[in-house]
Each structure stands twice: as C-alpha cells, then as structure tokens.
Amino acid sequence: MKVLVAVKRVVDYNVKVRPKADGSDVDTANVKMSINPFCEIAVEEAVRLKEKGVVSEIVAVSMGSKQCQEQIRTALALGADRGILVETDAELQPLAVAKCLKALVEKESPQLVILGKQSIDGDNNQTGQMLAALTGMGQGTFASEVNVEDASVKVTREIDGGLQTVELKLPAVVTTDLRLNEPRYASLPNIMKAKKKPLDTTTPDELGVDIAPRTKTLKVEPPAERQAGIKVADVAELVEKLKSEAKVI
C-alpha cells in the first residue's frame, strides 16, 4: 500500500526565536531550519512499515517556499521513495495545508497518511485532524503505536490519563507523538541517492486550492519575563522561604 507523509520546514528546535523589534513577525533570518521533529517521526514510521513489507511506496510532501525541497530531500534520504512540493511563498495556515493535502490524497489515493501531531513553530496541532475531516477518513492522533492490519489500522494514542487504542478503517490519517519511534540518521550514501529520487513540484493553484488566510497575526511579542530569583543555601532556608516569603506551603 501507499503512504503519504507530510513534512514541514521549521526553525530548528534548539534555536530560541525572538520577535522582530517592530512586533510584526518572528525573526527567522539566518536561523537554522530543519525538518519538524514530529514529521521526522512520521517519516521513520512510514519507512518501518515499508521495511515490514506492509507499505510499498512512500510519498513525502511539503508545502511552502522552494527551500522546503531540503526537507523533502531529508525525507527521501531517510527512505521515502519520491517527493512532492506544493510551492508557494504565501502564508499557509493549517486549513490551507489540509486542503492542499486533500487534493494530493485525491490524486495519489494513499491508504495511510502520516503527519506529525504538531509543528514546533505554530504549535497548532490541527492539520492531521483537519485533513481527516476533509477527506472523510478516521483519525488516530498522538500515536505511540501503529499496527496496520488488512483493512484497518490499530492506533495506540497518548491521552491525558494514559493510553487509548482505537481501530480505524483504511484509508486513515495518523499523527505521531514523540514516543512512536526513534528516527534514524540518514547515511551519506542515502543522502547521495536521495538526490536522484524524483521530486515533483506543483502549486496550490494547480491543485485548485484557495489558500487565503483566515486569521491575521496582529502582533508578536516576547512573553512576560520572570523575575530573577535567588539561590538558597540549604533545604532549611528553602522551606523557610516557601513558608514565610512565598507563602505557598
């Protein structure tokens, strides 16, 4: 069966971003960019399913600027078979991404679509759920275990109280949680091979998708800074301060 995996180019998770001085946006100039960590887990899961013989083809897709090709190449180096870039310089909100993905799902007819549960820039945690709604598929969000059976997939999900297992009819959408797997590193030969794998480019227009933003960011600002605290000498002083000064115990 065929799997579609969506990957996003984001500011590397180790970078501490700052708003621009005019508060218009986040300053991403000259900042290291990477594949979103949850998307990497999605690619890894697809590759493992292929290694198990469950999956025959993995299509990695990304949307955004031309540079998103780098993240698709990363996915190809990890084991995806081919890539599709939906190229646009316009701002893409999760609803627009979900609509582009829906158009690709209709073209490619994958049995499974795997996405990360959230991107670490927008922190929205929406795209997978919205894609599932638009395509009328079942959804297994925050997955920590995925077992594909004949016509269904069993997904163990991380929920607030612990774990929950659901069974979804295929085709279905799965979004990955951190504990689903440990992504591998791409080897140099695989990175070289990935350069030869096919990567098609399309646009939201060609897909017939209206990507007009529905929300407008009026301002971005740093969060309130915490006051610098003090160091205490020992446990006795700590307990004393918590009782008399902070009055929290």
């Binding site: 971003v17 670490i120 922190d123 529905r214 960011t217 301002k219 969060p223």
Partner: peptide
C-alpha cells in the same frame, strides 16, 4: 496564543 514553545506570544484576529 503562544507559539514557538511559548517563546513568542502572538495576537491573532480571526475573520471566520
């Protein structure tokens, strides 16, 4: 709403 792991607070207006 917070974005970028809470390092930035965005003020967002919805037209929906």
């Amino acid at each position: 709403r917070p974005i970028y792991a809470g390092n930035v607070i965005a003020t967002v207006q919805s037209s929906d």
